[in-house]
C-alpha cells in the first residue's frame, strides 16, 4: 500500500513536470529557451515517471532494466540538447538580438585562426 502511494506520487509529480514543460515548449519564444525546457522535460520528468514504475515493480529484473533506461536517458538527452543548442548558436547570426551571450566559438576561431 505504501509502495503504491509512493509510486503514485512519483508518477504524478513526473506527469506534472512533463505537462508543464510541454506547455513551456509552446509558450517560450526563442529556440534556446525551448531547448532548455525540452531537456528538463526528458530528464526530470522521465526520471520521476520511471522511478515510480521501479518502486511499483519492486526488486526485479524489470526495475533493473528501467534503471538502465534512466541511465541511458541521463547520458544521452543532455548531450543531445547541448548539441542542438550549439548548432543554434553557431548557425544563427541574429542571436545577439535576442539574448546576451559571449561568442566563445568566434573568439576561439579568431585565436586558432580557422584550423578547419
Amino acid at each position: 500500500m505504501i509502495r503504491v502511494l509512493i509510486a503514485g506520487g512519483l508518477i504524478i509529480t513526473g506527469l506534472y513536470v512533463l505537462a508543464t514543460t510541454t506547455i513551456g515548449i509552446f509558450r517560450f519564444s526563442t529556440m534556446l529557451n525551448r531547448v532548455h525546457v525540452a531537456s528538463k522535460c526528458d530528464t526530470l520528468g522521465a526520471l520521476l515517471v520511471l522511478s515510480g514504475l521501479m518502486v511499483l515493480s519492486g526488486w526485479s529484473v524489470y526495475s533493473l532494466k528501467l534503471a538502465l533506461v534512466i541511465v541511458f536517458l541521463w547520458l544521452c538527452n543532455p548531450v543531445a540538447s547541448h548539441l542542438i543548442a550549439r548548432a543554434e548558436v553557431r548557425t544563427n547570426p541574429n542571436l545577439n538580438l535576442i539574448c546576451d551571450f559571449i561568442d566563445a566559438t568566434k573568439e576561439s576561431e579568431g585565436n586558432s585562426n580557422g584550423d578547419n
Partner: peptide
Amino acid sequence: LHVYRNDDTILRGVAVMA
C-alpha cells in the same frame, strides 16, 4: 556554409561510454 568541427568535449566524453 558553416564550419563543421568535431571538437565537442561533452559529446566525446559520452561517445566513449556509449
